[in-house]
């Protein structure tokens, strides 16, 4: 009983970055440019998708007490595979993401989805869930990366937007990551709260 809600839930309503505030380490560290952010997001998406599929398939044969080590092995294998493939075929991106590719292993979004969703649901639902959360994470990273690159360097994805006319290089440095993420979190929380209030009012009128 595949349900498209599993997809939209992770993408927007329970967005891993902006709502659940998970996976903050790569969000802060790899979003120095939109391209890096996108690469990191997609790598995480693939790792999440593959691990969700496999964990959902094996959920009935995995003994309860060793499930965590098994999930970690599954996740680590896929991350290693992605790391090798990126090194072989996308060497430039691999170079600029550096240590953060191997660190996907400890990304709490992947572990969280494995434990909270894939280990309890069927394959198709798990795929939806992985795509929703993965794209939600990728989108969030891309947004943070774009804002930082735009304000810090005047470009998005290396394409000049306003070039040198307005630049705050601080946004590319570490503090900029915190500032940008904080501002975006505040923005999305405000929007979320406003929607909730609207719904409440609408409910009260009925």
């Amino acid at each position: 009983m595949a349900d498209i809600k599993n997809f939209t839930n992770g993408l927007i309503k329970n967005n891993p970055t902006f709502v659940q505030v998970l996976g903050i380490c790569p969000t802060l560290a790899t979003t120095t440019s939109a391209k890096n952010a996108l690469g990191m997001g997609l790598a995480t998406l693939f790792a999440l998708l593959l691990s969700n599929i496999v964990i959902s398939l094996i959920r009935k044969i995995v003994p309860e007490n060793v499930r965590i080590p098994i999930y970690i092995v599954v996740i680590a294998s896929f991350v290693t595979v992605i790391d090798l493939l990126m090194h072989g075929f996308l060497p430039e991106l691999w170079e600029s993401l550096g240590i953060f590719i191997p660190l996907i292993v400890v990304n709490c979004i992947i572990m969280g989805r494995a434990e909270a969703f894939a280990s309890k649901n069927g394959v198709v639902d798990s795929i939806f869930d992985a795509l929703g959360n993965g794209l939600g994470f990728t989108g969030a990273l891309f947004l943070v990366g774009s804002v930082r690159e735009l304000i810090g360097n005047g470009s998005i994805l290396g394409i000049n937007v306003w070039g040198n006319t307005f630049k705050i290089p601080l946004l590319i440095l570490a503090p900029g990551a915190f500032l940008t993420l904080g501002m975006l979190l505040a923005m999305f929380n405000t929007i979320g709260n406003a929607k909730k209030n609207q719904k409440k009012k609408a409910g009260a009128k009925k």
């Binding site: 560290a29 120095t32 890096n36 170079e95 600029s96 550096g98 440095l173």
Partner: peptide, 14 residues
């Protein structure tokens, strides 16, 4: 190889 340097800072060496 400078893949271990901080992206956006040390990685500018390239």
């Amino acid at each position: 190889d400078y893949s271990q340097e901080t992206p956006g800072l040390g990685s500018k060496i390239g």
